[in-house]
Write a protein that binds this DNA or RNA. Structure first.
Lengths: 340, 340
DNA sequence: CTTCCTTTGCAAAACGTTTTGGTTCGGTGT
DNA sequence: ACACCGAACCAAAACGTTTTGCAAAGGAAG
């Protein structure tokens, strides 16, 4: 590698001082340097392929132009990828770059990784969870602008974004109601997490709003796996006056419901309609017919989170906000009118 | 935020010069500083919560301790997450941190993103693709130690790692042979990519090695989607002397084969055995019965790639190597003995 | 022709490290 | 007693920027 071209090489080639080069390149509308000179310098810089050393400028301005993204786990779902991509895209648009770090469940490791981020002088961090949950912020992060992604915390001074679980469920259930269903079953999660409670609430809201009475036999609790969904759906669809439509806690649960339906000789959506939540394309697109579901907006949450933390950096006394993001319905082929 | 504690604060608190502090902290076995002093300095540094500024040290040593990871796309599959996690884990173990950047298909954008990485003075980059393919290295990367991840290139001087497609197929097919199958069908991909050719070759290798004659009617080409797999499997399983086992190009194709089997009233694995490739847990775990498949080792490839690029950085004249990584069989429930 | 701006450019300091070349000091060999 | 040596430490330079405080040049006003 030939020696890197620095600002002094540019200055020499352009026949000016380094000061002038710096001004020409940075100050968009400075009166310090004549427009003509500025253009000249810029041309020279481009020709030389000059790329400013951000270690140096970061050191000088106390601003690294780096964001940290610490996530709990990057698992088998594509959620993490979507969040990272959203974060990265938003960061890129504003001249930032993101360092990804993931700690598994190990809080000791997490602490050391945060320390590394601090050593690299990250200007802010996005603290992300893969599944909507409550967390407490690691003390190591105090002093760094931080926003929560897919997580909330008790401290009202920290901004956060999570999916609006209630709204997501309402959206899903209303798609069923719109198709004409009134006997609607729900397969909920056993776990005590925000999604469980929020989606149940949304389910009831939607029914109530449309004057549909809820039959308690039509609510069953299951492990949030395909097998759990299968057994739950088997139970729901075998009872008399069984539901004509199923609202499933997740796409994987919905996949179990598909299996139950075919096992019972029922076709989707003619005999039973199904909606899920997650929009895991790998599943929703692959099922047959395609699964109508509500998307969890990980990409958008990622974008929002980094834009938010960058806003905080630019203007440190922006009031914090806790956002719940609406979730769009993705229609495929699993919802139809009830069999008359 | 109180003013950051720097090396000079530590020096003052320890009653020594900054030089001594630096030596005490960095030189593991220096004769420059007495062991006792070294310990003292370290204690003081820890108590003060001193964390060296890597912008400064990077500037000084011409080494940022940052790796770039440029990937083509972070899509709906969990593959990208696995690669990133592998890369991040390996980097962490060696004191590095990774900057993730993804360019979509836009080579203009990719160029600008690589420029950003260069500005941050990354010590090396991992150039990753999500699906095994041939690429040419962007010229912007010349001069930076680079290794290819899930991609190969014509240039023998650049190291790369890809899954061993031939071996993966052999592994899958041999699992079927071991269970007793001899009439084995394959659903291959239409696309002209290394995986297509490699897996076909592995399929033939395995049959030949066990003296099984291949019936050309048992090979069909399909779109690598669930729907393609469904139609292909329908065709394969409807012919007379139909295969007793199906080797599918991917897990999604295998999912289509499941759908075809149940549509034909066949049960898995009693009437037909199925293996896939990918080990997409989201699919393989959710199918019923679970899908036996061959894992594409994205996590391990990610690890290998960063370890390799770090080796190149430490020792610039390590000879390059092009590695094909073996793929392990993951057994679930979709393979059984042929119906007699 | 002087004075006083305005415009344009430069030299030098600063950011927080690492490392080079000393300097001091207590001892050791002759 | 003399020079010398090594151990322990330190002052200062360097890394590549940005920015402050000045200086030079040129033009307008008096």
């Amino acid at each position: 590698m030939t020696t890197r071209v620095g600002i002094r090489e540019v200055a020499k080639a352009a026949g000016v001082s380094v000061t002038t080069v710096s001004h020409a390149l940075n100050d968009a509308t400075s009166s310090r340097v004549k427009a003509e000179t500025q253009q000249h310098v810029r041309d020279v810089a481009r020709n030389l392929g000059y790329a400013p050393n951000r270690l140096a400028s970061g050191l000088r301005n106390q601003r690294s132009q780096i964001l940290g993204l610490v996530s709990d786990e990057i698992t088998t779902t594509p959620f993490a990828g979507a969040m990272i991509r959203g974060a990265q895209d938003a960061a890129y648009e504003r001249g930032y770059v993101v360092m990804v770090v993931n700690s598994g469940l190990d809080s000791e490791l997490e602490h050391r990784e945060i320390t590394m981020l601090q050593q690299h002088q990250v200007d802010g961090v996005v603290y992300a969870r893969l599944y909507h949950q409550g967390v407490e912020l690691p003390p190591a992060l105090s002093g760094i602008p931080t926003v929560l992604l897919d997580a909330v915390t008790g401290d009202p001074s920290v901004s956060s974004i999570v999916p609006d679980e209630v709204n997501a469920a309402e959206t899903a259930v209303e798609a069923l109601i719109r198709a004409g269903h009134t006997r609607i079953g729900m397969i909920n999660n056993v776990d005590d997490i925000p999604a469980t409670h929020g989606r149940l609430e949304g389910f009831h809201n939607a029914l109530r709003r449309h004057g549909i009475e809820h039959d308690p036999r039509h609510l069953v609790i299951a492990e949030p796996e395909t097998s759990g969904g299968r057994e739950a759906a088997l139970a729901l669809l075998s009872q008399q006056d069984s539901p004509t439509a199923l609202f499933c806690f997740s796409d994987r649960v919905a996949m179990g419901a598909y299996q139950a339906a075919t096992a019972l000789g029922l076709t989707i959506p003619d005999d039973v309609s199904i909606v899920g939540i997650d929009n895991l394309e790998l599943i929703a697109d692959s099922l047959w017919p395609g699964l109508t579901t509500v998307a969890l907006p990980h990409y958008d949450m990622g974008r929002w989170a980094v834009n938010r933390v960058l806003d905080d950096i630019d203007n440190p006394d922006t009031p914090p906000e806790q956002v719940r993001l609406a979730c769009p319905l993705i229609e495929r082929g699993s919802v139809g009118p009830p069999r008359t």
